[in-house]
């Protein structure tokens, strides 16, 4: 959202989710930062969703398609990337839940409000966390350019 209080009406929103204070958990935000370095098609917008929860309803509803990038603690090797199309919150993989409020619920809400965008989730596997910090583990950090490249390929299709 910009300071006119309006979202750019766009066809596709690339939305990185997570808490950068929790290292790998903020990988979604880090991927968005990487994508913002590239030239994007005019109908594509990037947003650092941080831990925005309910605040993300408006930007998500304003898009036709939302590409979410989020971390998941699913036991897969760190840096594993999966492309999913969750329809309900129950399709959503397990995350660290500091930003759970709202985000998963929003998927259900779209359904209930009857105006859901198409949601594509890029889930990045991260190892369990034990300490706060801004740094990503090398396994996750080294995957960021490739994850960004795949998402750019999808929006440039």
């Amino acid at each position: 959202m910009n300071s006119n209080g309006n979202n750019h009406k766009s066809d596709t929103l690339i939305l990185g989710i997570g808490n950068i204070l929790m290292g790998d958990e903020g990988v979604g935000v880090r991927v968005v930062e990487e994508i913002q370095k590239a030239r994007l098609p005019v109908n594509v917008t990037c947003l650092d969703g941080g831990t925005g929860s309910f605040l993300l309803l408006d930007p998500m509803q304003s898009a036709e398609k939302v590409i979410l990038i989020d971390a998941t603690v699913d036991g897969a090797p760190a840096g594993t990337l999966r492309r999913l199309q969750p329809r309900f919150s129950s399709d959503y993989p397990r995350t660290l839940t500091a930003h759970d409020i709202g985000l998963k619920d929003l998927l259900d809400t779209f359904y209930l409000l009857g105006n859901q965008p198409e949601v594509v989730l890029y889930a990045v596997s991260i190892p369990p966390l034990h300490e706060m910090g801004l740094d990503l583990t090398p396994q996750v950090a080294s995957r960021i350019p490739e994850i960004a490249r795949q998402i750019l390929a999808e929006v440039n299709e």
Binding site: M1, N2, S3, D48, G50, G52, L55, L56
Partner: peptide
Amino acid sequence: AIFGGKNPH
């Protein structure tokens, strides 16, 4: 967003 330039954060 109007006063703080962006939202969230």
